[in-house]
Structures are given as C-alpha cells and as structure tokens.
Simulated assay, not measured.
Amino acid sequence: MNASPRVRIHSNYDALAAAGADRLIERLAAAQQQRGEATAVLTGGNIGISILAAVAEAENRDTVDWSRVNVWWGDERFLPASSPDRNAVQAEEALLRHVDINRGRVHPFGSADEFDDVHAAAAAYAAELAQDSAPFDVLLLGVGPDAHIASLFPDMDGVLARGRSTVGVENAPKPPPQRMSLTLEAIQSADEVWMVVAGKDKAGAVGLALAGAAPVQVPAAGATGRDKTLWLIDREAAEQVPESLLVDETAEQ
C-alpha cells in the first residue's frame, strides 16, 4: 500500500537544496546500515541537480559508502551520450565524479549513439532493471508547471502505460521531443518517493497533486512511495498546498 504524502516546506531554493542533500545522505547511509548497499533513482531539473551538487559539497557526504550505491534515473532525454542536456551528464558533473562511485553500479539510460529509436532504448533499460533485485530505497522526482514527472506528461500514452517498467516517449510537449521514462508503476515500486519542487510557476501543479487530482491529468498525483511519499518544496511552490497538509511545515533559514 502506498504512503500518504508528507510535506516539508523550506524557506527558499538554497535551503531546499541543502535540506534535500542532508536528507539524501542520511537515507542512503541508513539503507547501507540495514542491508549493506543503497539504491537511489535520480532526477534532473534545476533543483534536482542542485541537490546533487549540495551532496558533493556536504561535510558528511562520506558517511555514505559511495562504492555501494546503485544509481538509476527516472527519465532521460534521447540524445547523444555526451550531450550536456542529458540528466546523467549533469549528475556526473554535479556529484558522481566527486565521489568514489563504483561505475558498475551506475545505470544511465541508453543514448541516441547506441540505439536507433527511443523505444528500443526504453526496452533495454527495462531489461536491465529486471536483472537487478535491489529495491529502490529513494526515488527523486521534479515536477513541471504542467504537473509532469519524469517524462510522463498529462494525457499522453506514457502516463497510461501499465505492466511495464519503462516507456519510450515521442512528441513530448517540452524539448527534446524524444525521451525515456520509468512508468508510474515503476515509480510506485520505490520504498520512498521524494518530490523536489521549487518556484512559483510550480505552485498550481503542486496544489493539484496534493489535492488528489487524477494522475492521468496530473501525473505528479500518482507519484507515491510504498513506505513514504515526501514533498520537499520551497515557499513559492507551496502557495497552493491544502491547509490540512501545512502542519508539516519546517523553518529552515
């Protein structure tokens, strides 16, 4: 059964990035204490990458044994492997090159250099996921102004996909048009799902998702973890959060 959402509101963008980094370090270290390894599913976007950069700079980052962290992605742009617009390239620059990561545990989506089409790349990622038995300890997601998550956009085929872990996306409403994404079912398999959201332009999407909108129209509403669903947002993104959820407000400065 998926967990009801909890909300943590932070004073500004920088406070959100710092708090998200601290929380991620603590979660990965705790998972390693429990079973010897940890698995994180990363996201792109400004705040997602800022959290990774804050992890790299954190004094306590090495409480995590990075050589025993498995890294996956929630979605990716179907571009050449070296493109700076790829989430994996941005994560590499922000965090992965700064820690003692085991490259055999890092799992980027395939690129346009490797595959002829986006659907083949998505299928290959699904096959790779199927070979790995490690649970997703924490899965990070951003939210677009249209309430999309990963590369699951409102009223498009991707958000409707069932019975599979990945989907190839064509004609996405934001560039680039071709992408690969985890499905809602795969996202919901994570122990913890964290929505990391900053900015006034996201307030409407956050409000709709937390008010219980239908995931087909508001994909962010369908992003729930098995044990915990956590919204880490700044005050601007929180402007339309239902009052009943504001009891969890924090006061980071």
Rank of each mutant, 00 (worst) to 15 (best):
A127E: 13
A121F: 05
V118I: 14
Y125R: 10
L152Q: 03
G110I: 12
P108G: 11
A147Y: 03
A124N: 11
D113G: 03
L141F: 01
L152G: 02
H148P: 08
G144C: 10
R97T: 10
H107I: 14
D157M: 14
H107M: 15
L152S: 05
R105G: 07
H148Y: 11
I101C: 10
V99L: 09
G110V: 06
D116K: 13
P145S: 10
D113V: 08
D146M: 10
A121R: 06
G104Q: 15
G144D: 00
H148M: 14
A147Q: 00
F109R: 03
L95V: 02
A126C: 07
F153L: 13
A134E: 12
I101Y: 01
S111D: 01
L95S: 05
F153A: 15
Q131S: 15
S111F: 05
L96Y: 00
G144V: 07
D132S: 02
A120Q: 05
G104L: 08
I149F: 00
V99N: 04
R103F: 12
H107S: 09
I149V: 13
M156P: 01
S151H: 09
F109T: 06
D117Q: 09
A130E: 05
V99I: 13
E128F: 07
L139T: 08
F136N: 14
V118M: 11
A126D: 13
H148V: 15
A130Q: 07
A112F: 01
D113A: 11
Q131Y: 08
F153P: 06
Q131T: 15
A122G: 08
S151I: 12
Y125H: 13
L152A: 02
A120M: 14
F153E: 06
P108K: 11
H107N: 11
H119T: 09
E114Q: 11
S111C: 09
A127W: 03
V99E: 01
P145V: 11
F153Q: 05
D116T: 09
D137V: 15
D132Y: 03
D137T: 06
P135M: 02
H119S: 15
A126M: 07
R105V: 04
R97Y: 06
P108Q: 08
G142Y: 00
N102Y: 06
H119G: 08
D137K: 06
A130F: 07
A127Y: 01
A121Y: 04
